[in-house]
Amino acid sequence: MSTLTAENLVVQRSRTGRRDPVHEVADELCSAVFGSLRRRDQREKGRQYVFGLLEAPGRKSIRNIAAQTGGVGAEQSLHHFISDSTWEWQPIRSALAQYLDQTTPLTTWTAQPMAIPRGGEQSVGAGHRFDPHRGRMFRGQQAFGVWFTSVDVATPVGWRLYLPQDSAGSLTADRSYEDCAVTAALESVLQMGLAPRPVLLDIRGIGTRPTLHRFAQVGLPVLARISPATRLLVTDPALPGHGAGTLAAQDVLRNVRALRSPVEWTDPLRPGMRRTSWVSAVRVMMPDPSPERRRHLRLVGEWNDPNLPPTELWITDLLRPAPAVLLRMTKQARRVSVASRHSVQEVGLRDFSGRSLSGWHRHVTMASVAHAARALAEFR
């Protein structure tokens, strides 16, 4: 994780007379990903906004961004560029993902929720929201980021804001929190133009069967964290529980404790530190009244302490990778969670205020470019 703050960036640039590595990468990124902006002035406004996100101390409001990059006179033009312009954000997100893949090849996608607390309800999508991953209500916005993860880099490239059907039109509303989470992952990944890679998603507390079905329909592999109570069918005749009907996932894993094996992995909380977990993978199937929707899956269990119940349970349609490979893959979700806690605020991903949904999308797109510049500068 980068230790450079916005204040340090400004001080370093003024003392040395040269741009720091983050600014150099940001310059390269802006040149590479803003090609869909047809007008030169739009490309310049995009560059100005990204650099303002990197430099402005505190909250990354348009006023603060303008103060860093163009003074008071720039505020109105930047506001128009974000909230009232007509440029499309998806081509920039796709170009960003493709640039990243050429620089440090993609290994997995990770869908990560982002709660955005708000004191009032003047911003698009703001209201009383329930965060199932934290188990509590809050006032504000709920968004989902889709993160590009490689061996060296973890950075967001796709976004969706949760808009319940009672607060938005039919073209943008989500039927449920689950619908928003899955749609964010599917739409973002399918629009990036990259070869299919596994999508990591936490679906505890939301529908397991419909989620897996939606991924299967479009041919995207998925590795999803599930609740211990999720009902499954054991399909391997040699294993306990076969033919016993549906069992809770935690019971399936308890029956195969003897098949666990130790796996080493690197802790993203403490880079360089190696940890050991015990892992087991079992062939299972989701119970479904429709035979054509029944698919072979694998239940992956992880134990931090072999004498206690499993720490995490995951289900996947990846049938060939070894259990150790799948376990290490799940740690990308942990890595993204750590990165988001430490870096999202640095580039103002939560800082857009306004009623414009398109303005929100344009802001988080520019903030994603700024975030990628930080991540790539650290990698280099």
Rank of each mutant, 00 (worst) to 15 (best):
P289I: 01
N8P: 00
L163E: 11
L313C: 10
E24T: 11
G207N: 06
L357P: 02
T110L: 09
S150A: 12
T103H: 12
R134G: 10
I82C: 04
L220D: 08
V157F: 07
V364L: 11
C180I: 01
M137A: 07
M285E: 15
Y49C: 09
A111S: 13
A185H: 03
W265M: 03
I226H: 00
D202M: 08
C30T: 07
V199E: 07
N307V: 01
L232I: 09
P321T: 06
R214W: 09
W360A: 02
R355K: 14
T3G: 05
M285D: 07
R335V: 07
Q250H: 10
D317V: 11
A143K: 03
A224S: 15
L308N: 04
P164K: 01
P210L: 11
I203D: 07
R274N: 06
V256K: 00
V72I: 08
S2Y: 00
D131S: 14
W147S: 09
L318M: 15
R380L: 05
A66Y: 04
G158M: 05
V11W: 08
E75Y: 10
L186M: 10
G127V: 11
Q122T: 14
L239Q: 12
R295G: 03
A6N: 15
T311Q: 12
T86E: 14
A324I: 02
P291I: 08
S85E: 09
D236E: 12
T3M: 06
V282L: 05
